[in-house]
Design a protein around this nucleic acid. Structure first.
Lengths: 211, 211, 211, 211
DNA sequence: TATGAATGAGGGTTCATTCAT
DNA sequence: TATGAATGAACCCTCATTCAT
């Protein structure tokens, strides 16, 4: 039977509908919060039947976990180490780029970011673990970078763990305050990225730059 | 009249019972989280009847709001400006003391802090407003301090708003990471306070200290 | 505090309400069958709120298990061995009494019996196990009785297991056919008890009685 | 016209597919029970699409009704009267053959028999009526046989109705106990048929046979 | 005929809150 | 004031059945 065309089309449509429900869920979760959002809210907004939701997602928690994964994946891709090789671009420029990418990702996924910052913790064991792993891996990455930086003389000696928390917290707070709380204000990525890097760099570098 | 004594005693007892229920609620919320905690959990643990709870608190949200108030009050009391007058103690020492007090308050109210960091956001409109006000006032205070500091030549020119978020985020993250997430580890207040201040000061000061 | 009276009264009332819901459940299950009965049916008929049901019973299955226990207990109490001692009443009279008691128990709990015969099997693992245990213990008891009877020369040599099934089946079928299926007909206990015993005895006795 | 061939083939295939689904349903119902079996279980196991099921059967109940019909037909064919004419084989041999055939039918359709005994009653009105009719007709047949037997002096005077229930119950219980409950044990047809007939005959015959 | 995505009524259960005692 | 039984709205989820392709 030559059903490829049909199957393929169906498959495409399946993907689309799944994506449609997922993006609706993101929007609604972002607007009302996880606990305040009922399956009814999502399916009403998405214009599908109650049961349809369960064709694509196992449960309310499952869809949340999925959109969380999606955001964490985006963010992870933007956290990269700096290139310290000869001929590499200046470190502060590299850092600026990284922070910019992170902020841009957050801005492009404002609903997701809102969810991440407003709801994600304390939801359920799976979500908690996932978040701990995510922040844990970022934390670990920063700790490693500081050790390396110190070895290369790029940073002063630091309490690497505490400092990693400080930097992580800086970025989180900027996103939370200026993207999530002040949801209606424009989010000036360059401004905030510069401020973060400038603030952080000066706190890390062994010598004050001449400028 | 004997009435007075009775009333007073009753009144005292009323306050005590209220406090008893409140502290029980703090404990239970801290252990299980807000949504996972039912009124049944609280009254069972407190050893009072279901209805009694509603004699002292309007609702589940109301009790949460109250314990939130309690924590925010504690914290607010510890955020004080530095004394820049002649003969004042060195600024970094003053800052160190402030951060120490904040961390100590968090440690002394670990359940409350846990709730604050894990549950408070996105709960309901009242809680949200209260948190926004709290962080907003801290933020404002920091912005004001930076302006003043800049005027006095104590800090370099800064994006005051963004930098305020960075500092706030640093402290929040240290508490969240090392007090809430690593709940079983010892929380070395002096170490973390030093790290925070050291990290922040060097990022703020116009000139690198000589050491 | 002298709350004994209140507590006691409350306790009594609690028992009564529980019994009320249970008997309602028996009636409704008996009328509509387990699967066709919803919690809504029971609480509507009992005149209590949905949630009230769950104050007294853990689940729909739990209430079923409980009423099943109740009936099996009644029935078990009526299955007793015959007294073969000197001066004991004639065996057939004793058997007649036993069968009469069983049938009477079934009649007095017609709804329960209906449920037992119409619904109980295949419902869920717990129920299944309980029924298997019940019939198994009856079966075992009969097998033992036959062995003993054979030893005493009271019965002819038999395939004890198969014969136990036959007798058990006889009684079950009489109840099912004449109490459950012909629910509107009068259930003449004496007649059916006599028929069962007469039919069974003659199949078991080593010698045909002279008449 | 080639049409015929195609139609015939299609028709054959239609019948085959129907039979395939039906036998799958029997297997699945027998394994999991009616209520625990979903349409999804059946179509998955059968390897057809959900909608296809409804091309061949009206509903879940309808397919159950049909497989019930199938089993009842098998069983009905095996319940035949004894030949009392001159030169006929001994009555007990004839009865033994009948019981053997019944047990063999049950064994050959173990899934169906399991369904019959574990699920059939209380399912829905149609099934109930069908079962009542079936057992009613067997019952009627036995009652008639006893009347005839009494007239011919082959049986003692009996409460024909009650006794018919007893015999029916014996056979049912043996099947239920030893084929359905002890599903893993070997089902020794000859043994159980002998036991049933021996037990029943001696309970029915006016005189003890000389052996 | 065959498909399988879509439907939506209906299920059992929970729990914050009320209120008669 | 204290009690705890009672309430019932709201929740998440299932699944027999339908229907566009």
């Amino acid at each position: 039977m030559k059903e490829d065309g049909r199957t393929e089309r169906a498959s495409r449509s399946r993907e689309q509908k799944r994506a449609h429900i997922l993006s609706t869920a993101i929007r609604v979760f972002g607007k009302k919060g996880f606990h305040q959002t009922s399956i009814a809210d999502i399916v009403d907004e998405a214009g599908v039947a109650r049961g349809t939701f369960y064709l694509y997602f196992e449960s309310k928690s499952a869809v949340f976990l999925e959109l969380l994964d999606q955001l964490l994946l985006h963010l992870r891709q933007n956290v990269v180490g700096v290139d310290v090789g000869a001929g590499a671009r200046p470190i502060d420029e590299q850092l600026l780029d990284t922070v910019r990418r992170i902020l841009r990702t957050a801005e492009n996924n404002r609903s997701l970011a809102t969810i991440l910052f407003r709801e994600a913790v304390g939801l359920d064991a799976d979500v908690d673990r996932k978040l701990r792993e995510f922040y844990g891996s970022i934390h670990l990455f920063l700790v490693g970078s500081f050790s390396e930086g110190e070895r290369l003389g790029l940073t002063r000696p630091l309490d690497t763990e505490a400092t990693a928390s400080c930097i992580l917290g800086s970025i989180k707070q900027v996103i939370e305050q200026h993207l999530v709380v002040d949801a209606d204000a424009v989010f000036d990525i360059d401004r905030f990225a510069s401020a973060i890097v400038s603030y952080n760099i000066r706190g890390l570098m062994p010598h004050t730059p001449s400028n």
